[in-house]
Design a protein around this nucleic acid. Structure first.
Length: 315
DNA sequence: GTCCAGGCCAGAC
DNA sequence: GTCTGGCCTGGA
């Protein structure tokens, strides 16, 4: 039975089989992480925390140290510098989407078809995070026609440029994600130069202004039906159909949002459609085929496709 | 040097 | 409405 305990200011998730930090952070939904020796340092909200899935020796040590009986547990995840048990219940529990039964979800997806089954088996422990809506807007504007290492660097630099200082860990200073008001005051030149966002700089600043001035109301968007929300969020410059779906899936937990990116195009053409170039039609097929949880299925497909380089031309 | 990266935008039809 | 070319920039 999985549960949560705290020891020495650390939080431990015990017996949670569907929690693999690598599959959670390295699947393109989250950009504020670094990893060293399988331990992830992440910047989320006001926290700069360390997340690690403990190995057998570490579990044994923890067990002895605190006189616990954890030897039979195959999964212990440690959250360091993440606050106390109240922080867990008020923030982390929802952030990590702990109310969702991912084992049941994988079972459900496995029954749909063999390829999705393979993708879910490949990604046991993947979870779709519930992240800050505003942060997703800017992060995914940056993501367009870009790669993950550059996106990570840009988001980090952007925070350094306009965000509040949080903490210094292992010699690195981390900054909170900036507010819309702070980003709205930057000039495209300084943003482009410092954060390396290139031609996206004016999109970021203009979107920040529209949100700060209330021309686009993110709180209202969250109460809209999916189609309306998707349309409304696209009023922001730099936000097209794919970026809008990422924002809704990762920032507003819209399970139906099905981002069609290069990897999904490859997967869908390789295993489902044959040859379809129209992204709108690919998305329509995805929604029809995978149903209300299309976005969650997309995460398994995307992660597996990218990791295995689906659709690569054989020499 | 070329190509690509979790696409968007403007312009042409 | 659909399709096409161009695009900051860093790394392979």
């Amino acid at each position: 039975m999985n549960h949560v305990i705290t020891k020495n200011k650390d939080i431990y998730l015990i017996g949670q089989e569907d929690f693999e930090p690598k599959h959670i952070f390295e699947n393109g939904q989250m950009f504020r992480w670094t990893v060293k020796d399988d331990e992830y340092t992440i910047v989320v909200d006001k926290y700069v925390s360390k997340i690690k899935k403990l190995n057998l020796d570490e579990i044994k040590n923890l067990s002895q140290q605190h006189d616990l009986d954890l030897d039979s547990e195959s999964s212990v995840v440690r959250l360091q510098n993440a606050g106390d048990i109240n922080d867990y219940h008020q923030f982390w529990h929802h952030y990590f989407d702990m109310d969702r039964d991912y084992a049941a979800l994988r079972k459900e997806f496995s029954a749909i078809d063999d390829y999705l089954k393979k993708a879910t088996e490949f990604s046991v422990g993947l979870r779709v995070l519930n992240q800050d809506f505003w942060e997703m807007v800017i992060s995914f504007i940056i993501s367009a026609n870009n790669n993950i290492s550059r996106i990570k660097n840009s988001v980090s630099k952007l925070s350094e440029l306009a965000g509040e200082k949080l903490a210094e860990i292992d010699g690195v200073t981390h900054y909170k994600f900036p507010t819309a008001k702070a980003l709205a005051q930057l000039t495209p030149d300084e943003l482009s130069k410092f954060a390396g966002v290139g031609y996206r700089a004016p999109y970021i600043i203009e979107s920040a202004k529209m949100i700060d001035e209330g021309q686009v109301n993110l709180d209202q968007i969250r109460t809209m039906p999916y189609e309306d929300a998707h349309k409304e969020i696209m009023r922001l410059p730099g936000v097209g159909p794919k970026v809008a779906d990422c924002i809704l899936l990762f920032g507003d937990a819209r399970e139906i949002a099905f981002p069609v990116d290069t990897w999904v195009i490859k997967v869908m053409n390789e295993y489902y459609l044959g040859k379809e170039k129209n992204n709108k039609k690919i998305k329509a097929y995805g929604l029809e085929y995978f149903g209300q949880k299309a976005g969650l299925a997309q995460q398994y497909l995307f992660y597996h496709a990218r990791a295995t380089n689906v659709g690569a031309k054989k020499k």
